[in-house]
Design a binder for these strands. Structure first.
Length: 675
RNA sequence: UGCCCGAUGGUGUAACUGGCAACACGUCUGGUUUUGGUCCAGAAGAGUCUAGGUUCGAGCCCUAGUCGGGCAACCA
């Protein structure tokens, strides 16, 4: 099983390397360190799956540590939500920790720093301190407090802790290097005064440690071996290490910070600030709005933990910024739900269908498979009668033979029921179809085993019986933004790209009676439509379904009508309008792989295309690298055509031909000789 | 202007650490199918940002450049 050389991501590489050197497997420990100031989103899922996945892979503990050092922003509500989301994703943490648990230890270490003349209290305003920091290209200047005596620093810090100052009066700073090229090393803040109750420590403290001071030391206290964070913390690593140097006991494990790229998803935003803006501006209903990329939003939308884990797995881990296409997420949820969701029928845009030769008043209970993908999923019954609802879109009076659905005079199958044939329509005064009349082949009932029942017909429709149907509300969602990367535009605010049609509410859809029993969290496939889940807004007499994702629909692509925004319009265009010179380059690339007739054909194609190429287009390609022989040959052939058509020789041309004659490739030499 | 990252098909990642650029999604074609789904078979699409260099051999190593990202919160 371990036969195939499994490929490791760069984090796993680092761990493997450490394991080969000084570290033992037992020492491995990870942590997921959220700040409880917002809800978790799909980007966090990457970090969660990475850390907890590593824990599972190496059988190592993973702590859940709340980075709660700023009582201005953090709340218990978020702590609870975060824990809930992680558990829902299917992960178990070893110890639930809080940075605030270490406030005393952090304070004691700060005292030690002061005593070692490595920290000082600064009484300047935040503006002054910022000014003194300098800029990335100019060094900072020292604070006048930088060389205060240890005693004075100790005294001020003591008073800070005792609440003798108003907020902002003093800060404690590390004494490092005001000229460092790394701005973070220019005497960073360790503590600030915040007169506000903390969600866990209450009013015990009025000084709170900054992230950099708290984070690495918390890792050290917990003996975390690998502290993994996102790339924007890369430059914090130097400070992380400096702080560790000040307090480390060489007998103990030294945590290592490593950084990976955060994950972006197309057509959405991922920062907590922006998600909060969506909530506060009422663009969405709440953090768990099914359009939100939050874990809670995805859950409500109908995503499963397995699908999100799979998505993280497939997305991989790296150090370059990227935007993963939502289509991958959608693939993951379809794949999971296809195997597990119960098949049912529901009609979202109903039109009445009357089966004229089916007895009035008769009701048959038909049998429907719960899931053709799962052997033992069983069946359930569906009532069938003379009057049904079908999808308005599934009928056209007349259509071409690419239309597999119901038309006048054509036969289709009603899923799990009979084969019917369209006969006529009833219209209202405005010409809208109010009723479709059809006849049914009474011998063709599904599963009856008759010859008629196994007849092949081109299409199959879903339906519900009018008198048995249950009304339900259905909510369909589309991407929240119209732009692939809404927050990547310098000149435009992400809110400008909001998709006005991201929510479509269908007040009265009709679903089969089986769904009366649906429970919160149940997953269904409404056949031919997509995957749906019951929403929490459901009440006893009012079912509400969220559409998780539609089925893949290759029919929708056939229809020219929906001018839906294409994912990569500019690229498609570029490919569509490939110029002759580009075409030549493309053919040339693989020229040296060809032989015989294919080679001849390629040469002829290039020569033909060259008729439409100007010298101005061709000349830059004379510089093509020697190793790209194919391209040079293509250029040589094209040049031959241009010369034949009367192009005058010049120095650049002569040099290119001469270089061709010198080349090691026979084909190129032959072309050059022919000049 | 300084420092630090990064660059491989449309997208996201691989390439056993210098040896025929692979996988997944997406796209297209055909087959199966009582879901225009699933499943099956196949195809197209990348000389690995550019230019040099080292090497028998470079996506990988070296040099220079280009482009993209990050860094000057009493946020994390």
């Amino acid at each position: 099983m371990t036969e195939a050389p499994e490929s490791l991501n760069f984090i796993e590489q680092i761990i493997e390397d450490d394991l080969k050197n000084e570290l033992s497997t037992e020492q491995l420990r990870f942590r997921f360190p959220p700040e409880p100031n917002g809800y978790l989103h799909i980007g966090h899922a990457a970090s969660i799956c990475l850390n907890f996945g590593l824990g599972q892979k190496y059988n190592a503990p993973v702590n859940l540590r709340f980075d709660d050092t700023n009582p201005d922003k953090e709340e218990q509500e978020y702590v609870d939500a975060i824990k809930n989301d992680i558990e829902w994703l299917g992960f178990k943490w070893d110890t639930e920790c809080y940075s605030s648990d270490y406030f005393q230890q952090l304070y004691d270490w700060a005292i030690a720093l002061i005593k070692n003349d490595k920290a000082y209290a600064d009484g300047q305003s935040s503006e002054t301190i910022a000014e003194q920091k300098g800029t990335p290209t100019t060094p900072g200047v020292a604070s006048p407090h930088r060389n205060q005596s240890v005693e004075e620093n100790l005294e001020i810090f003591e008073k800070m802790k005792n609440g003798e100052f108003e907020a902002g009066r003093y800060v404690l700073r590390a004494k490092i290097d005001m000229a460092s090229p790394n701005m973070l090393m220019r005497d960073p803040l360790l503590y600030r005064i915040i007169n506000r109750a903390h969600h866990r420590t209450g009013s015990d403290w009025c000084i709170y440690p900054m992230y950099d001071w708290a984070h690495g030391e918390s890792d050290y206290i917990e003996q975390v071996s690998h502290s993994l964070c996102t790339l924007e913390f890369k430059s914090h690593r130097e400070l992380y290490d400096w702080f560790l140097d000040q307090i480390i006991d060489p007998e103990k494990l030294r945590p290592k910070q490593r950084e990976f790229a955060r994950r972006n998803l197309s057509y959405t935003v991922m920062s907590k600030r922006k998600l909060l803006e969506l909530v506060q501006s009422k663009t969405v209903t709440d953090w768990d709005d099914p359009r939100m990329p939050t874990i809670s939003g995805l859950r409500r939308r109908g995503y499963t933990p397995a699908s999100i884990r799979k998505f993280s797995d497939l997305s991989g881990i790296s150090k370059r910024d990227s935007v993963t296409d939502v289509s991958l997420l959608e693939f993951c949820i379809r794949e999971d739900l296809n195997k597990t969701a119960t098949r049912v029928m529901g009609v979202l845009d109903p039109v009445k269908l009357i089966i004229t030769n089916y007895p009035e008043g008769k009701v048959e209970m038909l049998t429907a498979e719960n899931n053709p993908e799962a052997e033992n999923a069983g069946t359930h019954e569906i009532p069938f009668s003379r009057e049904l609802y079908i999808e308005r879109e599934d009928f056209k009076e007349e259509a071409g033979n690419k239309f597999f659905r119901l038309t006048i005079g054509n036969e289709v199958r009603l899923k799990s029921a009979y084969i019917i044939k369209g006969e006529s329509v009833v219209q209202d005064t405005a010409g809208n179809i109010t009723e479709i009349r059809c006849t049914c082949d009474l011998e063709s009932r599904s599963g009856s085993g008759t010859e008629a029942s196994t007849r092949k017909v081109k299409g199959t429709l879903h339906w519900v019986s009018v008198q048995h149907a249950i009304k339900a509300e259905v909510r369909e969602y589309d991407r929240l933004f119209l732009d692939e990367a809404p927050d990547s535009h310098e000149d435009k605010d992400f809110m400008e790209f909001i998709n006005p049609d991201s929510l479509k509410i269908i007040k009265t859809a009709y679903v089969e009676p089986f769904l009366q029993e649906a429970k919160l969290g149940d997953k269904f496939q409404f056949q031919r439509l997509g995957y749906f889940t019951l929403d929490k807004d459901t009440s006893a007499d009012h079912l509400v379904f969220n559409k998780t994702v539609g089925l893949k629909d290759s029919w929708a692509k056939q229809k020219p009508e929906p001018a839906k925004q294409q994912s990569h319009p500019q690229n498609n265009q570029a490919q569509g309008q490939r110029s002759a010179i580009n075409e030549i380059q493309k053919i040339s690339k693989k020229y040296t792989n060809l032989s015989g007739a294919k080679l001849e054909a390629a040469r002829a194609d290039i020569a033909k295309l060259a008729e439409n190429v100007s010298y101005e287009e061709l000349e830059p390609l004379f510089n093509t690298a020697a190793k790209k022989v194919g391209t040079r040959i293509g250029v040589m052939i094209s040049l031959g055509v241009l010369l034949k058509n009367g192009l005058e020789r010049n120095a650049a041309i002569d040099a290119f031909i001469a270089a061709g004659l010198e080349d090691g490739n026979e084909l190129l030499v032959a072309e050059a000789k022919g000049m």
